[in-house]
Write a protein that binds this DNA or RNA. Sequence first.
DNA 1: TCGGTGTCGTGAAACGTTTACATATCGTGA
DNA 2: TCACGATATGTAAACGTTTCACGACACCGA
Lengths: 356, 356
Amino acid sequence: MKTPKGDPASRAKAPTIRDVAHLARTSIATVSYVLNNKDRYLRPELRDRVLEAAKTLGYVKNAVASSLKGKQRGIVAVMVPQFGNNFFTRICVEIEAVARRAGFVVIICNSDENPGQEISTLERLVSQKIDGCVLCPALSQTESTRLLERHRVPTVILERPLGDIIPDQDFVGHDNYQSGYMATRHLLEAGHRAIAFFGWDSPIPNVNHRVDGYKAALADFGITPEPDWVHLDDLSLDAGRRRAQQVPFDRITGIVLGHHLGVAQGLLQHLRERRLHWPDDLSVVMIGTPEWYDLIEPPLCCIERPESEMGRQAALLLLEKVRDPQHRGPQTILPVTFIPGSSVRQIPPTTISTGS
Amino acid sequence: MKTPKGDPASRAKAPTIRDVAHLARTSIATVSYVLNNKDRYLRPELRDRVLEAAKTLGYVKNAVASSLKGKQRGIVAVMVPQFGNNFFTRICVEIEAVARRAGFVVIICNSDENPGQEISTLERLVSQKIDGCVLCPALSQTESTRLLERHRVPTVILERPLGDIIPDQDFVGHDNYQSGYMATRHLLEAGHRAIAFFGWDSPIPNVNHRVDGYKAALADFGITPEPDWVHLDDLSLDAGRRRAQQVPFDRITGIVLGHHLGVAQGLLQHLRERRLHWPDDLSVVMIGTPEWYDLIEPPLCCIERPESEMGRQAALLLLEKVRDPQHRGPQTILPVTFIPGSSVRQIPPTTISTGS
DNA sequence: TCGGTGTCGTGAAACGTTTACATATCGTGA
DNA sequence: TCACGATATGTAAACGTTTCACGACACCGA
């Protein structure tokens, strides 16, 4: 006898609106009206019969077919350049939560900082007819936004502004300048005068803004950074260690870690290997709050970025744009917070040597 | 003059296959054949014309319409119970990578350990006609799998097996028993005899397997754990601290941290507050490898779970099932690895006191 | 009795694809 | 000259929804 595979019942196709209509002895139009509960004259008895039929069949609406008819899709996407990075993960978690509450599911994509990958993935998303997209562009290229714009996908740019190129971008980010400034300022106020900066050598402007903040803070104290104070390199552990070896720890007393990934861990490893301790041998302020910032001993002074709030605002703005494509939000730049730790040594004013 | 908003060109709808056909002066059938490059007799000149037209229009296929016709969707989903948890994030990152290479985008959903939320989200996914789903069920309930099964969504169960209830589940997980055993064994071999276990008080079996491993290791050394050695509580920092206060540190010399979240951080905080140090005052082995395990000083001995490999295998198995729904994989249970640290004190054999 | 005005329900045309099927024009060997 | 395979393209029917447009009643006042 042997049916091809599995029992007949389990082989039946998923029930459609047609099946429901048939079981409820009515038309598919009626079923559709009931299921979308439009206000329409409808005998309660029929309504119940339809609902009943849908339930017994385990009917689930085919959103694919609905969206063909121009209905909302129920999907938004997020494109991040480093899915593994805590910072982005936290943002994604929040976006997912907000979107879920609004009835959407979230496609999360990773461009790996690779523009080509970003474009091809965005093409897939466009093809999937997503309702909207939160985009954190890899390496600040703008081809992606043009693609999204051309296909009228409501978009919110996250974290990496596209500058003047795209005029009216809806943007949610945080204040990179402030983070650089605040970190440096804290060291300066503790009495430090020779302060290095470790950062990512990348074309995205955010890093430069942090450096700008760093320099501005120094300028406030009448200090011009030496050329070998600013170290920009790959965002990797090795680069961090390599650079750490180049820092003149005899002159430098403080350091601003521009990122919590790679460079930071590299420096910390280097210090440990050379048996240098913070804050005694070197004072440290880090931009970013990885899980471990207050687990290591002594805990690090950090600049906390408002990841959750960024995710929340980006999601809310996107949902607003999905509802009304004409909607324009303000360019949101959220402030950062200083998290005190024990990684900065207080230098008594008297001991400050001016020059040699 | 003022057009309603935006210039007319930018208001045009996204180009469809019909537009391409028109521009190429041919039928939509031909365009479809070209774009899917089916083998069909086709004059190269026409083919080029179609491709050309598609390009000039910036045509992107509407996957929604395709999938209505029974084509593959190009979307798979992952449902995790704790999106914020590193462990799951790492798995997701890998699933995303594998799926992307195969041409899929990934919807990531978070059930927050809430079965109701899980079901309702899965219903959305079913409605979206996803091609497949990697599911890590909240609290081991099986209603979810039945839903997916009923709608014939190829599914791979991740990390939390559903036991005998679902007979032929395709499963990818890691060896929880081994992790408990290995951690405990390491302490025992270092000479410890009074070893506590901190774990999550939850209905999912994985935790119990770890406890089983813990007990089995103790039994190997002829030890029966005291009732107050095993602490199961919420997976929260507070619970960790609360429980830590109850541990008789005068008798206990080693502790197995069953999770890297919450309990672990709670305990470490507690130790720090009481100025207790590992490994001198207490030896610690932790199951899980958060970013910080080797950044804190001294670094912790850990049991590493194969997160990436789990993600990879789950994704590959799922893709296989998407290709061939009849496909059945083996129940994969991946081994864990011990990562040596400096958080376990070696107790000289002579100092072992038997009884008081 | 007639038209009007609510009520309640259905038919059928989209949406953008895929693909079975039909059609048309060749060249070629019988 | 005819039949036939090979080559090349078009027609139209789905897929599962939504929703417009159209009945068909029932009740009402005139």
